[in-house]
């Protein structure tokens, strides 16, 4: 029996059922990505199957991530005029969001007693994995911890993002999209794409601009705050 095929089928099945549950209940916190990850980890732990065995099939799913990100160029193109028109507020919100994200995660982790190594690993948490890992490893963070936190932050944003935005009364479509992409990179973008394609476009923009800003600003902020010399 080929385990990886069975596990692939199970992944599709759980995701499908989770999507139906969310559609029926309308509860946005019941995120099918989160549910599928949680259930599959339990299944693998209980059946004593290693992640490597799962990934023999799983890598074929993850493979499509890069092409999917390339495909985001299409909605980006469709909204170029609107992006140009709103460029200044978009850029200012990205700069503010980027600074707020790096400084707040450092300050809170420090107050709660995290070690410097962990703090450096957390600093680039809001941006997409390859950028975050590069920042973390050049500054002396733990690569695998950064990778784990980036995925967690993505899922967190996808799960609580819309709830948060309605509580704090964000009502503009562009601001909602920007906030999701800036806070939780491609997972947030995927989640906002499901809610409204316009949100998805601006989430894509948030993902790109915050990725660039974070790679420039993280070393500067860590230096000013005294975590690296």
């Amino acid at each position: 029996m080929d385990n990886s095929i069975v596990l692939l089928a199970l992944t599709f099945g759980i995701y499908y059922v989770a999507s139906i549950i969310r559609k029926k209940t309308g509860v946005i916190v019941l995120n099918p990505i989160l549910i599928t990850i949680a259930v599959m980890i339990c299944v693998l732990k209980i059946a004593d199957i290693s992640f490597d065995t799962y990934n023999e099939g799983g890598k074929y799913i993850e493979f499509w991530l890069k092409p999917a990100i390339v495909a985001l160029g299409v909605p980006l193109y469709k909204h170029l005029d609107s992006i140009k028109k709103h460029f200044i507020p978009i850029f200012l919100s990205q700069l503010a969001g980027c600074l707020a994200g790096i400084i707040s995660v450092i300050a809170i982790a420090d107050v709660m007693g995290a070690t410097d190594e962990v703090i450096i690993s957390l600093a680039p948490k809001s941006v997409t994995t390859p950028i975050a890992i590069e920042i973390s490893s050049t500054l002396g963070g733990i690569q695998s911890l950064t990778a784990a936190v980036v995925v967690c932050v993505g899922i967190l944003g996808a799960v609580i993002g819309y709830r948060t935005m309605s509580l704090i009364k964000l009502n503009d479509d562009i601001s909602k999209g920007l906030a999701m992409g800036t806070a939780s990179h491609a997972v947030g973008t995927a989640a906002s794409m499901e809610v409204n394609p316009i949100h998805g476009v601006y989430a894509t923009l948030g993902l790109i601009i915050n990725g660039i800003l974070t790679s420039f600003l993280t070393p500067i902020i860590l230096r000013i705050m005294g975590y690296i010399s």
Partner: peptide, 12 residues
């Protein structure tokens, strides 16, 4: 796109 994040999520 969200579905493609599941394997890296399980890697947690």
């Amino acid at each position: 796109m969200g579905f493609f994040f599941i394997p890296p999520g399980i890697a947690l």
